[in-house]
């Protein structure tokens, strides 16, 4: 009875010994992802921003406009047609003219599309507009 209990205990201890390196590595991976990664934001359309060498960090607490490569536009999390978008943005800017706005546009989208959104923003009086880009190492 006593012997079998001790055998059981040593068997458990040896399992622990073998599993320790695994836990160490899993913990290291966990800490790596915690520190190095940032939680991905949910984007209503798939967007791959243009590469740029600008240094300024992207702000996250801003009203976000997404422009997909096929021209679809989303304000925040809702996809909108162009006319509805113009109205929604005018209403949002009128409610708070100083709020920062960022445009997350795909690199393949036509610049003219983005410019027409900028003109809409200009017409509604917003002055804090940023275009989101993706970091590219300077050559």
């Amino acid at each position: 009875m006593k012997l079998s209990a001790r055998l059981e205990a040593s068997r458990l201890a040896s399992i622990d010994d073998r599993i320790m390196p695994l836990i160490n590595i899993v913990f290291l991976l966990l800490i790596f992802f915690l520190v190095a990664g940032a939680i991905r934001e949910v984007e209503p359309v798939e967007v791959d921003p243009p590469r740029s060498v600008v240094e300024a960090e992207s702000v996250t607490d801003a009203l976000t406009i997404y422009v997909a490569s096929d021209g679809r536009i989303a304000l925040g999390e809702t996809l909108l047609e162009r006319d509805a978008f113009d109205q929604a943005i005018a209403a949002a800017v009128a409610a708070d003219p100083d709020q920062p706005i960022r445009i997350v546009a795909d690199r393949d989208v036509e610049a003219v599309n983005v410019i027409s959104i900028l003109e809409t923003l200009r017409a509604s009086g917003s002055s804090r507009v940023k275009l989101v880009t993706q970091m590219q190492a300077a050559p």
């Binding site: 940032a38 939680i39 600008v54 960090e57 992207s58 702000v59 507009v129 989101v132 970091m135």
Partner: peptide, 13 residues
Amino acid sequence: STFADRRSLDMAT
């Protein structure tokens, strides 16, 4: 998590 390094460019309006 994502490792994409997002930056931003000021747009003058």
